[in-house]
Design a protein around this nucleic acid. Structure first.
Lengths: 231, 231
DNA sequence: TATGTTTGAGGACATATGTCCTTTCCTAAA
DNA sequence: TTTAGGAAAGGACATATGTCCTCAAACATA
């Protein structure tokens, strides 16, 4: 479960190390939070009132379509900002964000940003850089998705989720996502994902273990994935 | 061909009407340009040194993959900024932008922006809003592309390109794009596009005329396209 | 006009992916 | 232990899309 870490020194260190453009006045209003694997940082459709800076760990961002299909959008590692678009546009949360590993984030309420950062060129420029970068990454991933088949996307996905797992095993109870969900995440049917997994098994890239998948040849998968979009 | 319009009053009027956050010092360095249908505003890979504000007409943005496939990214109408991402990131031009109709744009060299606008909160915020909005649109179109078949995307495309043409005809010599290119633009093969066009003909949505396509039932296409991404 | 060349439409087939259903296996409650 | 329920794997078939090729219309040129 999410909880606050009361360690202001560590918080300040994070800000210094990452050159985060929070002005002096904001410092008293910053909080450091820890999320466990599987925790939701925010959910699509919820009102957005916090902006988070991811400083440690890994999250995945996904959306759910009106028809109920789930689509993975990206995995994010530090340094990344969550909720920036919503802050600027003043809209509700666009996508759901879930912790893939244990995660630490600096959180600040919109109220204080509006009060102390809305006219701060350093902060605005910080946001601009983060968002343009995000735009660039999304652009790439869009082309990736349109240009490459499921095989490639799945390889990419497997590499991503086996990142922080000591055992390289994708377990079925992995976070809230069963293997079934994994299919939705890469934008294909469960059936088809299974076909491709079968093929990966045949090639010796992975092995099926009870209730999950074990990656045994990262190099092989990497060769298929090319420039991984989910990283 | 692109040419400058020496009408400072009109330029100022555009800025006022659209609430573009150009500061006083920038005004002497702004230029108003006109592009004819088919003109390229910028080309993928070129060094970027101008930022443009689209104030009139319509452009299409597309990218070319390493394998040579062309992929349409979006159509843009006023008010829109071209080259904003490149300005912020300091990178070369990401995508190619082509005028779909006669187009008018305000252009300003990066040099002056850096000098007079880099620390101007109003301008930074203006950019932030433009870019976050762009991000949102791209997000949507990505999901659109992943979630819907060629049929839907093609209907969407036909509606877009027939927008400014008095005759509702997509001519083969339309800008630099032959019908052949149109297929690449929506991310499918020429062959498959033809299949879907055949189907549209059978349904009475369009008609083949010499060297092109004529839209005769916009409502029918709209029903298929749903929420048009290319608009 | 005759002839060669280019371009577009469409046929035939292959591959990618989706849907539905069946079988197998695991788990939990009786 | 037995059994009902559910999850996972995979078979069978349908649909979407891609590739290659052929034919015909259009167009240019002699």
């Amino acid at each position: 479960m999410m909880r606050e870490i009361h360690d202001h020194e560590m918080l300040i260190r994070f800000i210094k190390e990452n050159n985060i453009a929070f002005s002096e006045e904001l410092l008293p209003h910053l909080h450091l939070y820890r999320f466990d694997q599987g925790d939701l940082i925010c959910s699509q459709g919820d009102p957005a009132d916090m902006l988070y800076v991811l400083v440690k760990g890994k999250v995945k961002v996904f959306t759910t379509s009106p028809e109920g299909r789930t689509l993975i959008l990206s995995f994010k590692k530090p340094l990344e900002v969550i909720g920036d678009i919503e802050y600027v546009r003043g809209t509700e949360t666009m996508n759901t964000v879930e912790a893939v590993s244990r995660v630490e984030m600096i959180g600040v309420h919109h109220r204080w940003l509006k009060k102390y950062a809305a006219a701060d060129p350093a902060f605005l420029e910080f946001l601009l850089h983060i968002i343009t970068n995000k735009f660039y990454v999304k652009s790439n991933s869009m082309q990736f998705n349109l240009l490459y088949p499921v095989e490639v996307r799945l390889a990419s996905y497997l590499l991503s989720v086996s990142y922080d797992s000591s055992s390289n095993v994708l377990k079925k109870q992995h976070s809230s996502a069963s293997l079934r969900d994994a299919a939705n995440l890469i934008g294909t049917s469960y059936r088809h994902m299974n076909r491709v997994l079968q093929q990966f098994c045949a090639n010796g890239f992975i092995e099926r273990v009870s209730g999950g998948i074990m990656v045994i040849d990262r190099a092989g998968l990497t060769a298929i994935a090319g420039n991984n979009i989910y990283e």
